[in-house]
């Protein structure tokens, strides 16, 4: 290895050949367009030509009531979408993983495979299947609630402004729970036997063993899951689009940044699509995601203690 790369040697063509295709495709299709999108957000189309307007587009987005009402609504909804994921998806994922990782559990391969099934399905299937199930026309949901005597609780959740977003968040949780479950399962399996045995010798068993020994050891994995969820949520689009359409009804109550970006970029009904405003919204999403990733990398990850075995 070292012989290959000692300085003062001629240029190593094979390194360039190995790297070139990946770097070229990645740069041309991802990095440059990303930079292009950020740049586009600083321009505006005036008389068929792009004019530099500085931060005017952002001022419009935050201040002009035509845009800002929808923008703040989408952002608020997106935050709620993320909160539901953190509150439901991760705890349930940890619970399932903890149960699955017990070595004497039978059929664990079956449970693992089955619980991961929704994650591989497309949003189109998930969105539509749940739309049918929750539809008052079909009546599967009230029927099921009837079994547990809660039929009175049923309302058409996806059609009511106050419930639609929460219902969709829960559908999304249903779909993606496999990912936290698997990653935490993997983390739990990698805890060495000796640590657990030492805990048992000290009389730390059962639930307290979980809270005091295992949970601290899997915290880094929970951190990774949180940031993955964050990035995924602030970039989500497909589920809302499939279940509620580009208008994110009822009355924009399920509008999130992804659907808002889609409408701004392509237009809908009477509004004409505006690539510059689309780029502006994409830039905001970029900054939010970048902010989240930075908070994770510099504040959370460095403070989490990692244990080397």
């Amino acid at each position: 290895m070292a012989a290959q790369t000692r300085p003062k040697r001629p240029f190593h063509w094979h390194i360039a050949v190995f790297l070139a295709p990946a770097v070229l495709v990645y740069t041309a299709i991802m990095i440059l367009p990303l930079a292009g999108t950020l740049q586009l957000s600083l321009f505006r189309n005036v008389d068929q030509s792009q004019v530099f307007v500085g931060l005017d587009n952002f001022r419009t987005l935050f201040g002009d009531p035509n845009w800002s009402v929808n923008f703040w609504n989408a952002l608020r909804n997106n935050v709620w979408f993320f909160i539901i994921h953190m509150l439901v998806q991760n705890p349930v994922g940890v619970l399932l993983a903890a149960l699955l990782s017990s070595p004497k559990l039978r059929f664990s391969a079956f449970y693992r495979t089955a619980i991961f099934v929704p994650t591989i399905l497309s949003f189109v299937i998930v969105g539509f299947a749940w739309k049918l199930i929750l539809s008052p026309l079909w009546g599967v949901a009230p029927h099921l609630l009837d079994f547990v005597g809660l039929k009175s609780l049923f309302t058409p959740w996806l059609g009511k402004e106050q419930y639609a977003l929460t219902a969709l968040s829960l559908i999304s949780v249903w779909q993606f729970i496999g990912i936290p479950m698997m990653l935490i399962y993997a983390a739990l399996l990698s805890i060495p036997e000796e640590v657990i045995e030492a805990a048992e010798c000290d009389g730390v068993t059962g639930l307290s063993q979980f809270w005091k020994i295992k949970l601290p050891l899997i915290l880094p994995s929970i951190g990774i899951i949180s940031i993955l969820t964050f990035v995924g949520n602030f970039n989500a689009f497909d589920l809302i689009y499939t279940a509620q359409g580009a208008l994110a009804g009822p009355n924009y109550s399920t509008d999130i940044l992804g659907t808002f970006l889609y409408r701004a970029f392509f237009g809908f009904q009477l509004q004409v699509g505006d690539p510059n405003m689309g780029a502006t919204i994409a830039t905001i999403m970029f900054l939010i995601i970048l902010g989240g990733v930075c908070v994770y990398l510099f504040l959370i990850q460095t403070r989490l203690r990692r244990y080397q075995f």
Binding site: G36, F237, G258, A282
Partner: peptide, 23 residues
């Protein structure tokens, strides 16, 4: 170079859509 390539794990390509479509 490793970091440059890893950037795309966290930043979704979807945000570049506007310019990708133009391209």
């Amino acid at each position: 170079m490793g970091l440059y390539l890893a950037l795309g794990i966290m930043i979704p390509i979807r945000l570049a859509t506007v310019a990708i479509l133009q391209l």
